[in-house]
Every structure is written in structure tokens, then in C-alpha cells.
């Protein structure tokens, strides 16, 4: 086993007095796609958000335990959260491009993170990111159009291009296809396949077929507990835990 990219140890998350995540430990390696599944309210999105400290913005949220990125404690006081979120990018359920041009959507991150100042280099980053996100051919002739003018699926790929423009190490995806039609969904899934290996990817999804299609390992959450975490092919053909079995076969949730 390769050294983990992300290591979470005994992580619990509280919203006020409510414990949303209870003592979860998980490793994610550089070269894999990990899917988080579980019924609504099971804590999978909450846990995903601890991985780049998105919960910091929720005043009542409190995180216990340790999370390491390449062995570095991301909750250490010395951690630069802005830098962390560049290293651990995020794609949300609803595509949320900036109300700016397609070009600016992608160029914004590299510019504010000071990755480049030269126009030519920035052009290269924008083109490369859009290509990797599988969007370049569709938008190359209208880079000055507003990002919000694109279709939902294109907007989501634009958001992925925006996330990868700052050259992250990990991409977190929180139900990235739930607002997309099947073709746009297939394109995102194909994209996940292509991005795999270059970035560690963690995806939260309610679509179990999607988890089965895109991930190598799957974690099943229920009521804040990590019930089972294993090879995706095992989870969907022969889960060990009764609760996992009942959930994936459609008996509750």
C-alpha cells in the first residue's frame, strides 16, 4: 500500500451539541477514487468537508481528531487555510461558476494564488485546465462568454476546470452530478476516470451505481458512523456489514 495522501484519525464532528460524525478513521491514497455513500443525514458530506476545512465557515461546527495531508496536520494553527483549499479543491452539488467569463472562471485561482502573472502562461493554464476537464473544444471560441451561460453539465465541468487550474493534490466532489442529466453525468464520470491518478479524488454520491462505476474504494456512512470501508467491488457484491447490505440493496435509506 502506498503512503496515504489523506489520513483521518478518530475524527468526530459536532454541530453544537449534535454529533454528526463519530470517531471516523480513513485513509485515501494518491492514486484512487474513494466514494462516500449513505442515506441523507449520515454525515458523509460533513466528513468530506472536514478534509479541506469547509466546516470552519459553520460557526457551530467543531472538529475533533486529526486529519493529515501528506502527514501534515491540516487543523494545525500554522496551516494556511486558503493554501489548503488550493491543495484540496472542491466541486459542489450545484454548479457554481463565478458570474464572470469562462476564461476568468479558470484564471481567477491561479492568479490570486500567484501561480503566474504572465498572460501567456495564464492562457496555457486556462487551456490545459479546460482540456483536462473535457470542456476546451466546446468553449474555446467563446472564452469571453459568461460562465453562467453554459449548460449545467458544462458549468460543472467548468467548476472542475477551475478546481484543477490551481494544481491541487486532492479533489473533493460533493454530489457533482445530482443536478445533471445522464449524458452530462457520463461526461463527468469519464472525466473522473481521466483525472484519477493525477489527483486523489473523494466523491460523495447518492447514486450507488455511480459510486460503483467511478470508485476503487467505497465508504458507507450511517448515522455518523463509518460502517464499512472497502474495495468497491466487494461492497457492491458482498458487503460484510448487514447495514451496508440493507442500504445498497434498497431496503432503507
Amino acid at each position: 500500500m502506498t503512503t496515504p495522501k489523506i489520513t483521518a484519525r478518530n475524527v468526530s464532528v459536532y454541530y453544537g451539541a449534535t454529533r454528526a460524525i463519530d470517531d471516523v478513521s480513513i485513509d485515501v491514497t494518491q492514486d484512487e477514487v474513494v466514494a462516500f455513500i449513505g442515506p441523507s443525514g449520515c454525515g458523509k458530506s460533513t466528513f468530506l468537508r472536514t478534509l479541506n476545512r469547509m466546516n470552519d465557515t459553520v460557526p457551530s461546527a467543531r472538529v475533533e481528531g486529526e486529519i493529515y495531508l501528506d502527514g501534515e496536520d491540516i487543523y494545525a494553527p500554522s496551516m494556511d487555510v486558503v493554501q489548503l483549499r488550493a491543495r484540496v479543491g472542491m466541486v459542489f452539488q450545484k454548479p457554481n461558476p463565478f458570474p464572470k467569463s469562462i476564461y476568468e472562471n479558470v484564471a481567477y485561482g491561479p492568479r490570486i494564488h500567484g501561480l503566474t502573472h504572465a498572460k501567456g502562461e495564464l492562457d496555457d493554464i486556462v487551456e490545459g485546465s479546460l482540456r483536462r476537464a473535457g470542456l476546451w473544444d466546446e468553449v474555446k471560441d467563446r472564452l469571453t462568454d459568461s460562465g453562467t451561460a453554459l449548460s449545467g453539465g458544462q458549468q460543472q465541468r467548468l467548476c472542475i476546470a477551475r478546481a484543477i487550474a490551481v494544481d491541487p493534490e486532492v479533489i473533493l466532489m460533493d454530489e457533482p452530478c445530482s443536478a445533471l442529466d445522464p449524458i452530462a453525468t457520463a461526461k463527468i464520470e469519464e472525466l473522473i476516470h481521466e483525472l484519477k491518478g493525477r489527483y486523489a479524488i473523494v466523491i460523495v454520491t447518492h447514486n450507488m451505481q455511480q459510486a460503483a462505476r467511478v470508485s476503487q474504494r467505497t465508504a458507507f456512512f450511517h448515522l455518523g458512523h463509518l460502517v464499512e470501508f472497502g474495495a468497491t467491488s466487494d461492497i457492491f457484491t458482498n458487503p460484510r456489514a448487514e447495514r451496508t447490505k440493507d442500504y445498497i440493496t434498497g431496503r432503507y435509506g
Binding site: 450507488m208 451505481q209 457484491t237 458482498n238 440493496t249
Partner: peptide
């Protein structure tokens, strides 16, 4: 139509 999983699929 049902996309059975796990023990159902087996």
C-alpha cells in the same frame, strides 16, 4: 429495471 446489488444480485 431494478439494478439489484449484493445478495439480491447474487
Amino acid at each position: 429495471l431494478r439494478a439489484p446489488m449484493a445478495n439480491d444480485l447474487r
